[in-house]
Write a protein that binds this DNA or RNA. Structure first.
Length: 425
RNA sequence: GUGCCUGUAGCUCAACGGCAGAGCGCCACACUGUGGAUGUGGAUGUUGUGGGUUCGAAACCCAUCAGGCACCCCA
């Protein structure tokens, strides 16, 4: 063990148990996406660094990307996010795609960050977007997809919520407070920090950034006003649509939700585990109406969100929402009585498989005790034994491993018998 | 990239300058044609790695790697 090469920092190894969790998240994301008619797609895993330089922000490109030179001397990067690839691919076929485009994807991403709980350097992310429609109802649909996912994995509105805000609404509030446009990034970071700092430090920080007492008081008023959305037509329509979509119970307006991304233009939202230990968002997204024009396409509005598998997996585990692990996809073990019977056992297993039953054979003669222990560990449902006694009578022993009951049945009735046993469980 | 905490058996942890241990798990047997329970026995460590201090280091010091917490950032 000592001389084994360690896995690369921040990567994860997926043993069958972890793979099952990843696939569970994938299946639920797919079900929620498809329920709303979204098509699955994917982009390249390696992209030119220039793709992200335009709009993703300096931090992402310069510090958080895996960048390397290929053999031809070009700088390439393992994709840190999907939206720029989406924008390019849509822009490339803008005249032939049928709009609105509803696309979803689930794949690997890489970011060169300091690993800690909920954050790794290699992770999987569910992305889902709608392009071509600029309406609060479209925003509501994406939030409804997110809520549908949460509901489908058993995270109810008492433990999880989607918090919604609107960039345009906040901009108008900042205007009213006399905060100039060039300070928008700073103030948005300041708002993000608020929940992590004590209020005295946070206020000192605000003064350092050049805000005066009046602006600070005004800002605190805005951030504490959870009825702010009622005066905003976009948000009123959004919440009305959420009501019709039957997901209103999951969604709350929260003026403190800002999101760091530069390209969001309207609605922004993040889902959190309300009482959980993980303070990171389960998923986050929003409306980006300028992105396609920014990468060289015709102007096209879009809205979407992304969910990482790391935080989602932790929250599912903390809430006991991960389905029990099934060690084996087989339900039947055919034991091997002795060397002479080995091929008889293989033949029985083959017959079961042809009938659509997943079956394993113990691959060598061993004590039956050991073979049954193996079946137990693999949580199989049925064990079939064929020994000299059975062969003589043309029968096989079929044991229901859940109840412990064993029956001797004619060999030609085995498949029907096993099927009925499995169906009854 | 910065600061702090932690690395001991497969897992969870103890020993905190003086013989490296426990529980769980694993393997075998009791039980040579049948699992889950019970009992008995057994195996497993260059104490993350490399160096230093010391008569003596798992423990103290330095470096390094990995994980965690906070900062940063969160597309």
């Amino acid at each position: 063990m000592k001389n084994i090469i360690q896995p690369v920092k921040g990567t994860r190894e997926f043993y069958p148990e972890q793979m099952a969790l990843r696939n569970f998240i994938y299946e639920k994301a797919r079900a929620a996406s498809q329920a709303f008619g979204y098509q699955e797609w994917d982009g390249p895993f390696i992209e030119s660094i220039d793709l992200y330089a335009a709009k993703s922000g300096e931090e992402l490109v310069k510090k958080q990307s895996f960048v390397f030179e290929d053999r031809g001397g070009d700088l390439v990067t393992l994709r840190p996010e999907l939206t720029p690839s989406l924008a390019r691919m849509v822009a490339a076929r803008q005249n032939e795609l049928t709009f609105p485009v509803r696309w979803w994807s689930f794949g690997p991403f890489w970011r060169y960050e300091q690993p800690q709980k909920g954050r790794t350097r290699e992770f999987f992310q569910w992305n889902i977007d709608m392009l071509g429609v600029d309406s609060p109802e479209a925003d509501a649909e994406l939030i409804a997809v997110a809520a549908t996912f949460l509901r489908s994995v058993g995270l109810d509105p008492q433990r999880t919520a989607v918090f919604v805000n609107n960039r345009r609404l906040m901009d108008s509030q900042f205007d009213a407070l006399g905060i100039p446009p060039e300070k928008r990034l700073e103030i948005s970071n300041l708002i993000d920090r608020r929940s992590k700092m004590d209020s005295a430090k946070w206020e000192a920080n605000a003064f350092e950034l050049g805000f005066d007492q009046k602006q600070l008081d005004g800002l605190k008023n805005v951030l504490g006003n959870y009825d702010l959305w009622k005066g905003n037509e976009e948000l009123v329509r959004l919440f009305s649509a959420l009501d019709a979509l039957d997901v209103k119970e999951y969604v709350k307006f929260d003026p403190n939700i800002m999101r760091g991304l530069l390209y969001y233009t309207g609605t922004v939202f993040e889902a959190y585990d309300i009482r959980g230990l993980v303070k990171r968002a389960i998923l986050g997204g929003g409306r980006y109406d300028n992105l396609l024009a920014d990468v060289g396409g015709q102007p096209l509005p879009g809205v979407g969100f992304a969910m990482g598998d790391v935080v989602a997996g932790i929250i599912l585990q903390e809430n006991g929402r991960v389905p029990e692990f099934q060690p084996s996809p087989a339900s039947v073990l055919v034991t091997v009585f002795d060397q002479n019977m080995l091929s008889r056992s293989y033949a029985l297993a083959s017959a079961l498989r042809r009938a659509g039953v997943n079956a394993m054979v113990y691959p060598e003669p061993a004590k039956l005790q050991k073979q049954f222990k193996f079946a137990d560990k693999m949580k199989l449902c049925v064990a079939i034994t064929i020994g000299p006694d059975e062969v003589e009578k043309g029968r096989v022993a079929v044991k229901d491993l859940k109840s412990g009951a064993q029956q001797i049945v004619p060999e030609d009735a085995m498949i029907e018998f096993v099927r009925r046993l499995l169906d009854s469980q």
